[in-house]
Computed example of a mutant assay.
Amino acid sequence: MAFPIWLPATLLAGATQAWRTAVQRRVSKELSVNAAGLVRYLYGLPFALMLLAGYRLIYPGPLPSPDPSFLLFCLGGGLAQIVATNLLIMAFAHRNFVVGTAYSKTEAVQGAILSFLLMGERLPPLAWAGIGCGVAGIMLLSVGGKKPGFLRALGQPAALCGIASGFFFALTAIAIRRGTQEVDAGGANADPVLAALIVLVVTVAMQTVMQGGFLLLREPGEMRKVLHGWRISGQVGLLSALGSACWFTGFATAPVALVRIVGQVEVAFTLGFGHFYLGERMKQSEVMGLVLVATGVVLALTGAL
């Protein structure tokens, strides 16, 4: 596979998402789960629109004519991401920032299996070895070097929420990839980055309506808090739009499983933000887990590129 745009886009997505999640965790301390989730969509939509408009200014040309079915993939992917985000915020309530994110990173192996079953995407053996190495690192991160080990820890609320979050994030990735394929049909003027940005805007708009409508009906008081805290929420929206644009570009240009495996570098950025931004202590087991995750990413890249 030639060196494509998905690799730098995925690395940037990991860094941006870790930063956004760190800021969002602070927001979640003052808001309900649904309100904290809405922040990334409501405040992310204007930035997503600006990214699309800016890209069109730099690269003008004919707009694609997507199959209307791409709207269904945007809807499904958007709903799955809402559920995944809420589950991740719930995981934070039970354990620290790093551990909550580590459980959700089982998304890499879940995504590899689901993308094979649903889309027939295959990975070379070395990439699967990288997945195994990365999962081992996540196991070490999740238990923090303490007993009772990973298997018993699976029954804890943080593990259940985190792993379920990873499952729905994997479904999101598959739906978004299919949506970009319907927009970018591979014609003479095919532009996967433009397709990714179009899907991003449509998906975030749908998410704002879905979760915003739910919040207005069930938690109107929380909606007032979301609107009142626009200063810090705007940071979440900006980082969310930038991160999602990079993720969507990766999904549009490479297999879902490969993007998510490399995306595990987010754990490295998460450790950094957890330590320096949130003041959480970094343990020796977390450093060892990070080394395993990084090794898994290198193996996956070596097998795929």
Rank of each mutant, 00 (worst) to 15 (best):
V204P: 00
N86S: 14
G221P: 10
C246A: 12
W19T: 06
E280M: 08
A129H: 00
E222H: 14
P66L: 10
Y43C: 02
R260Y: 04
T208P: 01
W6F: 13
I261V: 09
Y41H: 10
F3K: 03
G213S: 12
A294I: 15
V183L: 01
H94E: 10
P220I: 09
P66S: 09
L239E: 02
L238I: 14
G272F: 15
F97Q: 07
V204D: 06
E286G: 13
A80T: 13
L11M: 14
V143S: 05
T253W: 13
L7P: 12
P62V: 14
G166L: 07
S28F: 10
A170C: 05
W128K: 00
R40Y: 06
P8M: 11
V297K: 02
G137I: 07
A245Y: 10
F150D: 02
F3N: 07
V226Q: 13
I261C: 02
F251W: 09
L31T: 07
T180F: 06
T295F: 13
L238C: 02
G130T: 07
S240C: 03
T21C: 01
V204F: 11
M288A: 12
N34R: 12
T101R: 09
G296I: 10
W6M: 07
A108H: 05
A205F: 12
M210V: 14
K29V: 09
N96G: 11
A300E: 00
F248P: 06
S142F: 00
R231W: 13
G132D: 03
L154V: 05
V267Y: 01
T295L: 15
P68G: 11
V256Q: 05
E219F: 11
Y43K: 03
R122M: 08
L87S: 04
R40W: 04
T10M: 11
L200E: 11
L217V: 14
P66T: 11
G187T: 14
P60T: 08
L12N: 00
V259S: 08
M119Q: 14
M223S: 05
G155S: 05
R122W: 08
P68H: 09
I138N: 02
L171R: 01
A129C: 06
P255C: 06
R56C: 15
S142C: 13
A35Q: 15
T270S: 12
A173V: 02
M50E: 02
P125V: 01
G187D: 15
P192R: 13
G303D: 06
P46Q: 07
L49K: 00
L75N: 01
A48S: 12
I138A: 03
I5Q: 08
K147F: 04
G272M: 15
P66H: 11
R177H: 10
L258S: 03
L79Q: 00
T302I: 04
G234N: 14
A170K: 03
V98H: 04
V226M: 15
F97H: 09
E286P: 08
F168W: 06
A173N: 07
R56P: 00
E280Y: 09
R231N: 09
V298C: 12
Y41N: 08
S233N: 15
K225M: 07
P60V: 08
T270F: 01
A112R: 03
I82A: 09
K225L: 11
L301I: 13
F169N: 03
D67Q: 10
S244D: 02
L140T: 05
R177E: 10
I232H: 15
G274A: 11
W128Q: 00
N34I: 00
G44K: 06
